[in-house]
Simulated assay, not measured.
Amino acid sequence: MSVSDDGIAGAKSSLSLVTNLSVIFLVVLWLIPTVGLLVSSFRDRDAISSSGWWNAPFATEQNFAAGAEGEFTQTPDGWVIEGNVFGEDGSGTVTAFGGRRAEPTAFQPGTTGELVRGRTLTMEANGDYRYVDPGEDAPRRNPTLYFGTQVPPSFSTDNYETILFSNGMDVAFINTLTVTIPATIIPILIAAFAAYALAWMDFPFRGTIIAVIVGLLVVPLQLALVPMLTFHNDIGIGQSFYGIWFAHTGFGLPLAIYLLRNYMVGLPRDIIESAKVDGATDFQVFTKIVLPLSFPALASFAIFQFLWTWNDLLVAKVFLPSNSDSWVMTVKIADDLLGSRGGDWGILAAAAFVSIAVPLIVFFTMQRYLVRGLLAGSVK
């Protein structure tokens, strides 16, 4: 008779394989779009439009438009202009060609395509072309030739250079730090005091205040933007750094108080009661005992708040002045770089990785302190 290892100390559960496979699946699921974004950040706009990021290591077929160079010469067939679409070096292979933007690959190389008004276009695979216009008078302008060709894989740092060395990006970076650091510290300070009061101090309507805070968690951010901006204008701070600090503080406080209060409630009651018996005041208990033990929760919320404020676009658009001197990085990228380039996904991908550099540093730095806080709390 076989005996199952389930429930035996030191033996792996039968669900461990399923758990490991689930974790691997989730990691891969999150990793795939990240890798795609990273690859796209090193490709140009035409390559991104013509093929997916998974085809980046392979040659892709792209369509181009080139103006015929030179002058028309009169022949018995009509006015003729000849040349090579690849220029003087003639390096490249034409896979298809056409005479209209709507049909850039209508004909195969080596054939003669019939165009409008009796005109013809012949193009070879090496790029040589012959355009014939049977009209009596010489054409007023040279035609535009459309063709497709295989483009080898190409990667460059042009997108990153555009982002990093764009005019005013240094000011936007400083503005982002100016917004993010106070908007992270202020709600943590206020929330820590409020959470301790709601967790360990007895006063009237404490339960009602907790219920109101929980209710504020479900208030949509968009619903509060206009009333808060109106209030800021009434008190004289309007669209300024003070206004966006208070806005981020107001939007972050309900979650901060809720998380910190729930964490502080779970702290050992004996330690706090012993400190009060020894004559410690509430402020001393908070600063000497509760605050050090609550560092993991403080670090966790600091990470989330920093990431939220660093990557924010909507609140910055509403509560900061519209002039370029007050732009943060997200507004700079959205209004200046992408606004003038349309759907330039390479710029957007590079901007995403540039913008996450500082949050990643903060995350891994705070993660180290987070582990220290957990270990310190476990032995006290």
Rank of each mutant, 00 (worst) to 15 (best):
W53V: 08
R101T: 14
A47V: 05
D44I: 02
E103C: 02
F58A: 14
S40P: 00
Q74K: 15
F58R: 15
S91H: 14
E69P: 13
E88R: 14
R45N: 11
T95P: 04
D44E: 00
A66K: 13
W53E: 04
A96L: 00
F64C: 05
I48P: 05
F64E: 03
P57K: 05
V28S: 02
L37F: 06
D44L: 03
V27N: 00
T75C: 09
E69I: 13
S41Y: 02
F86K: 14
L26C: 02
F72Y: 14
I48M: 04
R100V: 10
N63I: 11
D77M: 13
R43H: 05
G78I: 14
L26A: 04
A68K: 13
D77I: 10
L26I: 07
E69V: 15
D46L: 13
S51D: 15
L29C: 07
G52Q: 08
E88T: 15
E103V: 07
S40D: 06
G92F: 09
L38Q: 03
F86R: 14
S51H: 11
T73K: 14
V28Q: 01
T95F: 01
L29T: 01
L38K: 03
D46A: 10
I32N: 00
V80A: 14
A66N: 10
A66S: 08
N63A: 06
F86Q: 10
S51C: 10
T93G: 13
S49M: 12
W54N: 06
G70R: 06
S41E: 02
W30M: 06
A68E: 09
T60P: 04
V27Q: 00
I32Q: 00
R45G: 05
A66W: 11
S51M: 12
F25S: 00
N84S: 10
T93L: 13
F97H: 04
V80S: 12
N55M: 07
P104A: 00
F72A: 08
G92S: 08
G92Y: 11
P57N: 06
E82G: 09
P33H: 02
I48Y: 03
R43V: 01
N63F: 07
E82K: 15
E69S: 15
F58W: 13
V85Q: 11
W30D: 02
P104G: 03
T60D: 07
V28T: 07
F86N: 12
N84W: 08
G87C: 04
P104R: 01
G90W: 02
